[in-house]
Amino acid sequence: MIRMEGVTKAFGDNRVLRDVDLEIEKGSSMVIIGGSGTGKSVALKCVLGLVRHDAGRILVDGQDAGKGDRDAFLARFGMLFQGGALFDSLPVWHNVAFRLMRGALKRPREEAREIAIEKLRRVGLKPDVADRLPAELSGGMQKRVGLARAIAAEPEIIFFDEPTTGLDPIMAGVINDLIREIVTEMGATAMTITHDMSSVRAIADRVAMLHDGVIQWTGPVGDMDASGDAYVDQFIHGRAEGPIAAVR
């Protein structure tokens, strides 16, 4: 279970997270929605300790995320970065198998490569991309390689930062199904950021809306359409008029 209590984060005088309270049950799929630049990515990075939050607490299974053995902590996570963040000096398969080739999860090179190719197949990529460099792939393909890397070591907790942005609708459907599958089959806990409402409906157990540095609304995905919250309504219907300013 992941729990954020009163988390705040400012960059200079840009107060991105003002007071974020959020709880994600073990084995459930939480989707965070919200306008671009509202701090969704920053919130994920705070949980992973990539960005140090200014105040508040972040607990993972009751343990303070910042304390204790960092390697053991991070070994439980998989993360898909918004921009892919592939290592551009390494071929695709090596990117995917990165965690499997060093540290506690190290395996023989051949085996790591086989796992990488299997994961690539799961995200809809053919084995022949395995030996290419990330720079030779399209943006959507890079995203899927990043996704394959995030799930390669079968982590307990997976964060997806805009997994379907930049993908065609069919591929987006494939990825939505995959995320759903990972949560139900592997029993993983997932936290996904997305702007894509079809994605929200396909993968979410619960939805949280981040706006103005706080969680504006959170609830089961079934309640989203009847939330009675003007912010959520504006967002899910994509209206220019409403409480959320179009210029931010």
Partner: peptide
Amino acid sequence: TMKVTEQIDALVTLST
């Protein structure tokens, strides 16, 4: 470049 494209963050999350 690795830093601005989040590759350093990615390294950290991969326990490296």
